[in-house]
Structures are given as structure tokens and as C-alpha cells.
Amino acid sequence: MLSDYVDRAIAKAIYDKLEDGTFTGRIPVCKGVIAFASTLRECEDELRSTLEDWILLALKLGHSLPVIDSIDLNKEPTLESMDTV
């Protein structure tokens, strides 16, 4: 579920080429997730890494995350008994 969330968030990313030839990327629905790099590919990689760190920190601190394409990471996990495994 976490991988799907990251993939779908990255699919919503917006990239721009800056005047100096470098790139910036952001995910508007994920406030504060932004990356800068010298190539578009590096920017995509950096943005994914920044997003992953942002998600982990939000979960650790108990912050609410945006629901992306019906994936809600804010739900409490449900535990199943060992008999069902």
C-alpha cells in the first residue's frame, strides 16, 4: 500500500526547468515536498526520496497525510488473529 501511495503521488508531480538549466519538482497535494537537481531524472529520484522521508516523518509524528487516489495512510492498521494466517 505504501509503494502504491508513493507511485500515485509521484504521478501527480509537476516538473519545471529553471533558468539555469536545472530542474525542480513538486507534488502539489503533498505540501512541502519539493526537489531540485541538475537533470530531470535526478530530480525525479530526489523527489521520490523526499516524498518517502516526508511520509515516514508524518507517520512518526502522527500528522495527517493527504488521501491520494483513495489510498488513505491515516487509517489505523487492523490486526488479524494468528488463526487466520
Rank of each mutant, 00 (worst) to 15 (best):
M1T: 14
Y5R: 00
Y5F: 15
Y5M: 02
V6I: 11
D7G: 03
D7I: 08
R8Q: 13
A9V: 12
A9H: 11
A9P: 15
A11T: 12
K17T: 08
L18P: 07
E19S: 15
E19D: 15
T22S: 15
T22W: 09
F23S: 00
F23E: 00
I27K: 01
P28N: 08
V29M: 03
K31A: 15
K31P: 05
G32Q: 11
I34C: 03
F36I: 11
A37C: 04
A37K: 05
S38W: 09
T39C: 09
L40A: 04
E42Y: 06
E42Q: 09
E46G: 04
R48I: 00
T50M: 07
E52W: 03
D53C: 07
W54K: 00
I55W: 04
A58E: 03
A58V: 05
L59T: 05
L61P: 01
G62M: 04
G62K: 05
S64L: 06
P66F: 10
V67P: 02
S70Q: 10
S70G: 10
S70W: 02
I71F: 13
T78D: 14
L79W: 12
L79S: 09
L79A: 10
L79H: 10
E80C: 13
S81A: 05
S81G: 06
S81E: 03
M82I: 10
D83K: 08
